[in-house]
Design a protein around this nucleic acid. Structure first.
Lengths: 123, 123
DNA sequence: CAGGATCCTAATCGATACTG
DNA sequence: CAGTATCGATTAGGATCCTG
């Protein structure tokens, strides 16, 4: 007989896994980028497209609408000609930035670490 | 003529968008969950399957192999009968936990905020 | 310029069956 | 128990065209 299952010591997420649900506000490969480029201040649709060259208009639009619906970002239509739209992070949206920064930080060190490890295999 | 494009004030990620690359270590819907449940200590394959009921063995296996390849998690085969495998976060892997926690925190408040907003539309 | 509509590709995931 | 293999469903994403 094998080992008995250990109970999880983690505060279990009972109601339909809120962890998964919460993490979904960074859904897709582009949401973090959008939040990142909005973190320095309001930005227009075209500017974001320029900031993130490989994103398509369709996906950028979709992510922005999602972020807006979730309360992470806000949309403001400017009465200019031609019309433009300006997006900004909400207060809560701004609080995501440090978390993203932390993940990027770890990711960066992880890459450096990978090289070091080839010479010093076991730590 | 429309507004001139503003230059991004964000430290631009020049080398092939490291932000996207780094965020990819939380790839998929399940990586955060796996990291989360490993954060309390080493855990076996079957235990993780039990922790995250809706994950399939195929995906759990794939995510674990990815996390291991990236240096976020480590794998240890136990000489038991039947054989078992134990996974654990590496030091750098542990550093992802606060970030995930922060995101979940914001996500939780975002949900509460959504309800409040229905009564007090403009803040 | 903003962004919706359509079509298509690629990645992810779940279920099931099977191996060591 | 710890996986791998295969299949089919779902979904993010890109490209292009088109409208206000």
């Amino acid at each position: 007989m094998g080992l008995p299952l250990r109970k999880s010591k983690v505060t279990a997420p009972p109601p339909a896994c809120p962890l998964t649900e919460c993490m979904s506000l960074l859904r897709g490969a582009w949401a973090p980028n959008v939040i990142w480029y909005l973190s320095a201040g309001p930005r227009r649709f075209g500017e974001l497209r320029h900031d993130i060259p490989r994103i398509s208009a369709r996906v950028l639009s979709a992510r922005l609408r999602e972020l807006e619906a979730k309360g992470v970002a806000s949309r403001r239509v400017l009465a200019t000609s031609p019309p433009s739209a300006e997006y900004a992070l909400t207060e809560l949206g701004h609080e995501l930035v440090p978390a993203i920064k932390a993940i990027v930080e770890v990711g960066t060190r992880l890459k450096q670490h990978a090289k070091t490890r080839r010479k010093a295999p076991a730590k």
